[in-house]
Design a protein around this nucleic acid. Structure first.
Lengths: 212, 212
DNA sequence: TTCGGCTTGTGAATTCGTTCACAAGCTGAA
DNA sequence: TTCAGCTTGTGAACGAATTCACAAGCCGAA
């Protein structure tokens, strides 16, 4: 089992992301070695699950001892593609867009927002941090000039699909969508949807059941 | 199969949430009847999946015709617990908290943020919209006075667990967590985690693979 | 060196979710 | 009424993800 021959199931990738966070915490605390059961406790899962997940990357554990925190941290960063800088464009400088822009952990993880697009004439030309907000007509130029790898969509639902079509045409292969629409795009472009409402509504379902 | 005897799998509940959004779009367009295949197209899934999902609620479709948009909308609202107002407290009035507070769709769906807590002395006492921000020491009082059903956590990771313990002790049964920690809480409290980093990192994994 | 205590890595079993395939049933036309 | 054309609801088949269970291997003590 290694990272070149097999592709890792999505559910596992998401957990790897969590494990990496825990490992960094352990590293900060000076812990050098960690067992699957410790990661499991932290992550609200089981030791078997952790070992199965990590087995997708190869054999980095030592029987009787656990995993080297430093080594595993490095492996995870590599597998998740966090050992380089990704250039990110933000579409939409409204409430959500601004909050995302100012979210520190993105930058720490190597996601650099180098481009911000908005179609509000009042905003275009003004700055968000040190970045100048550019208008929608500049989209293709900006994606190309800034060599954007990944786009975050934080515009109102009705305009999202149109913009994303242009983004895909410009060759971008990854989209993180905060707009409350189901975007349609080619199979070779990776898409993740984040819906605040879906999460809240599934809680609402749980609450409603609880009452009965 | 009906909503009282069986509990609906989580993956299905999340899709129901999407279907509801599509149905409301259809309603706005004046469409009165919709087939599973139309919902599937919209949602990027299959007709069989849609029918299986909806079959968890009972038999609301008409063979040869499809589903009545108005009827199904009502049923979904009922099942998801969106036919009433949920009283929500927001912990943390920072960037993310503020963006969530001002996110219109929450209120439209019956999630009313009636309480905002923050421990920054500069913020306490000032208003967020028409709500007065209250300090952390008022947490229990506020939850009780405002009869809070659900709590949104948008505070820094290190203080999240401590606050949530107090929230749980106060009897709240649903938590939506935006803090980048894995919260530990009793099994009878519903928890959803929203992690901006996990989503981005799974895209990063996809990009890294793409390059190889 | 040998032994006891731990912990990994992984086939096998199980559980959970999705897709298939088709009988049952509705509508409108003739 | 009968028929043709659709579409639902659902058992059965399939596939994916999780959990189980244990052999293999490492470490430190004696």
């Amino acid at each position: 089992m290694n990272e070149f021959t097999s592709r890792i199931p999505d559910a596992t990738v998401r957990r790897l992301s969590l494990y990496l966070r825990f490992l960094e915490d352990f590293e900060r605390l000076g812990v050098t070695s960690v067992a699957s059961v410790a990661l499991a406790e932290r992550g609200g899962t089981t030791a078997a699950q952790v070992r199965k997940d990590l087995s997708h990357l190869g054999s980095y554990g030592k029987r009787g001892l656990g995993y080297s925190v430093a080594e595993l941290t490095g492996v995870l960063r590599g597998v998740l593609g966090l050992d380089c800088v990704w250039r990110v464009a933000l579409l939409g400088a409204g409430r959500i867009g601004t909050a995302l822009f100012e979210y520190e952990p993105f930058r720490r993880r190597g996601f650099h927002i180098t481009t911000v697009i908005d179609n509000d004439p009042c905003k275009v030309g003004t700055g968000l941090g040190s970045i100048r907000i550019r208008g929608q007509h500049e989209l293709e130029d900006a994606l190309c000039e800034d060599r954007i790898d990944l786009v975050i969509v934080a515009v109102p639902a009705p305009v999202a699909q149109g913009l994303v079509d242009r983004v895909v045409a410009a060759g971008v292969k990854a989209v993180l969508n905060y707009a409350p629409v189901q975007l349609r795009l080619p199979a070779d472009v990776a898409l993740r949807n984040v819906s605040m409402l879906v999460e809240l509504e599934s809680l609402s379902y749980a609450l409603a059941r609880h009452r009965t």
